[in-house]
Simulated scan of single mutants.
Amino acid sequence: MTITQLYYVLAVAENKNFTLAAEKCFVTQPTLSMQIQKLEDELGILIFDRSKKPIQLTEIGHKIVNQAKNIVNESGRIQDIVDQQKGFIGGEFKLGIIPTIMPTLLPMFLSNFIKKYPKIKLVIEEHNTEEMITLLKNGHLDAAIAATPLEDEKIKEIVLYYEPFVAYFPENHHSFQKEEIEVGDIDVENLLLLQDGHCFRDGILNLCKNTNNSESSIFQIESGSFEMLIKLADEGLGTTLLPYLHTLDLKEKDKVKLRHFKDPKPSREVSLIFPKSELKIHIIDALRQVIAGVVKGAIVFQNVQIISPLSKKP
């Protein structure tokens, strides 16, 4: 039994196709099939039911795949141990970031991180939270930045900062003259939201469920970007909520339409998330330190109320 054979098994289990798995592993399909066959012969069992389309795991195959994930992950720790002993911080590191955090946070830390750790090949991918959790568990991402808590027993979270929700009111809004607002000042019936699938949207829905309004009454204009929501609000089509960091880059004429909530400010918790196997933890810690250094001056709110990003099912 070899680590390579187990790696091939995991690829087939994920892709449910030998040819596609071989492409992902950068080997020929006969090579991959032969190695899996050798492993099955050695164990005296079938890992895959090849008679089904797509290919399915056998009952014992499910158990083997679960153990194979542990073995492959632990084998990767050997290189981590060597790197840490040598004081080497480098190699490829795949980082996922959710769309509502990517445009504001990435420019703040990327340049500093690259300059400080030039031997790290940082590969950055944008995914929604659900996609990133799957990619983390399957070993396709080393870490990610997302809104938390996620309540996933296989994922570890390290909080980076707390980011308040900020209301954006057109000038004719009944609360425009207020210096600070409460959740009850939000017009839930005319609330402009991001499209379904964004955890920032789910956070707003969870926040507004604390009022007497129901989700079904929320105005059904949805967009994929905060910029579009701002334009819709300016056209008198409603109000919206923005993450605090996004408000820093607004034009001065738009900043006058922002209203902060009273303490404790409803906020999202932004964290580095990664598998509990803690592979490449030395790089994760380096990333955490760099991000903490750059957001320290931008995020100064302490009295906050964390709003869950988890979509609440009725």
Rank of each mutant, 00 (worst) to 15 (best):
V270S: 07
E171F: 03
S267Y: 05
E235C: 06
D254G: 11
R268F: 10
P243M: 09
F169D: 00
L258N: 04
D285G: 01
A298S: 10
L205D: 00
L250P: 12
S267A: 14
V270I: 12
K296Y: 09
K262Q: 10
I221R: 07
S277I: 14
Q302A: 10
F176P: 02
R288N: 01
E278S: 12
L207K: 03
K276A: 14
Q177Y: 12
V300Y: 04
P243I: 07
K231M: 14
M228E: 08
K209A: 01
K209Y: 02
K257T: 11
Q195V: 04
V300P: 00
E215K: 05
G238C: 05
E179S: 13
E180M: 12
N210A: 13
K296G: 13
G297Q: 08
I273S: 01
R201Q: 11
H260F: 06
E227Q: 13
K276L: 11
I221T: 09
Q289K: 11
I218W: 00
N206S: 06
F261S: 05
I283G: 00
S311L: 14
L250D: 15
E182V: 15
F226H: 11
F219Y: 03
D202M: 02
L250F: 12
R268Y: 10
E179K: 14
L192M: 07
D249T: 14
K296V: 10
I291K: 02
